[in-house]
Amino acid sequence: MIDFIQNTVDGVMFGSSYALLAIGFTIVFGVMRRLNLAFGASIMLGAYMGTWLHVHYQVHVLVVAVTTVACTVLVGIYVERLCFHAVRRDAALASMVSSFVIWMQLEEAAIHLLPERTYAFPGLFAAGSYEAGPFLFRTEQTAMLLLAAVMVGALHLLLHRTRFGLALRATSENPLAAAYMGIHRTWTVLCAFVLMSLAGGVAGFAILATDQQITPFFGLWATFKGLIAMMLGGMGSLPGAILGGLLLGVVEAHALWYLGAEYRDLSAFLLLFAMLVSRPGGLLGQRILSREELAFRRV
């Protein structure tokens, strides 16, 4: 029982960064109904910039954190301008394919930046842990949870208390009606990408500071985890992204403990498979069945 609780808490802590990745995907999906496949790679390149400073100049970990987030935002803007702004509005597939291509480009850039592929990433604290009753918590993971909670809180305030948040939500609901209200779509989309990158940069830093190492494959990994968490919760739903991220973290933590490390990723895919079969819209996704689909089911 203690193991179970311990795993669940560990899962929630690590899942909080999956939640941030999923939030990133879901913000842009909500506004554009498109997936930015280069998201993970943007975070990876941002983190590589931080690592580069760390490797060459031994800068403080906070400088690495700021560089990671700032560069992720810059790369995010680059991806938006190139794959989403430049591609015609109705060509959703073209945007996704070009974001995949940019993913490859970003990976190449990272490899050229730091050619030895695997590098140490500075931890936020010296790896430590503390006890609370029968439970043991890792300091970095607690910091990750707190960081994610602060991000989610800030995002919630931004979306529900500001004029910009209102514009973002209105555009997600109905881009045409939002345009009638005088809301600039291109500006809103660019801001959505900045938000996505902020969430991704923070998540990336928190995860890498826990793992204390980085490889170019981090991009692939982050894209997978973020997409799975978003689809578990329901695409386009912010509470869904949080729930999906935490659920993914908890299931992985249990799989890791009871079945072994090789089952960690497998459990994630099984979970996604089970969700897509039983609730295709995800936990909190909209019911996506139209009248025609309902009629078709009865035929």
Partner: peptide
């Protein structure tokens, strides 16, 4: 200001 056809309110706001 335009009041569009079919209302187009923001349904989940």
């Amino acid at each position: 200001a335009l009041v569009p056809e079919n209302r187009l309110v923001f349904p989940r706001m």
